[in-house]
């Protein structure tokens, strides 16, 4: 542990860090929690639990580092440890398939089968939101972190505890799945 991490903040400093660095991310945190749990009460519990943990472990937060990424990491871990355990059947990704995706025969398939920009622009919010929600939680998470929250690959790797290469291949696979679903919507709309 670095010197900065060992340092104990005074109560005033803790309050200042909390208000100025943690609290501004409340909306993003709630959005993330809601898209993981699909339940308003669970999302509230998850966000509250995350903020209480953040305060309790504030001494391990180094000022000047990315507070949002630190909070997202706590929330993701709380979700896995506390909330996902409650679900009946934890979802699993065939990681072997994901890891080898770039080298598979799928590479020869058209990159974006019959999906066009004009059809996307005619979609209302529900369609894209439903498609995102229909993704397996691990695929959904990378899309949320990258496309909704704008985290960089290295930040995502730290939040998710996975190598950058896995972040990128998982993101690639997630986007293809999203496109398949949106293609289905586009066909229904007559495109």
């Amino acid at each position: 542990m670095s010197e900065a991490a060992k340092k104990k903040y005074s109560l005033d400093e803790k309050n200042r860090i909390f208000k100025s660095e943690f609290f501004p991310h409340l909306d993003s945190m709630y959005n993330f929690a809601f898209r993981l749990t699909f339940d308003e009460d669970d999302a509230k519990d998850l966000v509250q639990d995350t903020y209480l943990k953040a305060f309790r472990f504030i001494d391990s937060f180094e000022q000047g580092t990315n507070a949002k990424a630190w909070l997202f990491r706590i929330l993701k871990n709380s979700f896995i440890n506390d909330f996902r355990k409650k679900s009946k059947a934890p979802t699993k990704i065939d990681y072997q398939e994901v890891e080898t995706y770039y080298n598979s025969d799928d590479i020869d398939e058209p990159i974006t089968p019959d999906l066009r920009v004009d059809s996307l622009q005619d979609m209302i919010g529900d369609e894209i939101s439903n498609a995102l929600n229909a993704l397996d939680v691990d695929f959904r998470t990378v899309i949320i972190l990258c496309d909704l929250e704008g985290f960089k690959y290295d930040e995502m790797a730290k939040i998710l505890d996975i190598p950058i290469g896995t972040v990128r291949s998982r993101l690639h696979r997630a986007r293809n799945l999203l496109k398949e679903m949106l293609s289905g919507y586009a066909k229904k709309m007559g495109y």
Binding site: R35, I128, D147
Partner: peptide, 12 residues
């Protein structure tokens, strides 16, 4: 589209 339609949720 994701940024426009899936963000902007406010915490209760």
């Amino acid at each position: 589209l994701l940024k426009q339609k899936c963000c902007g949720q406010h915490v209760p």
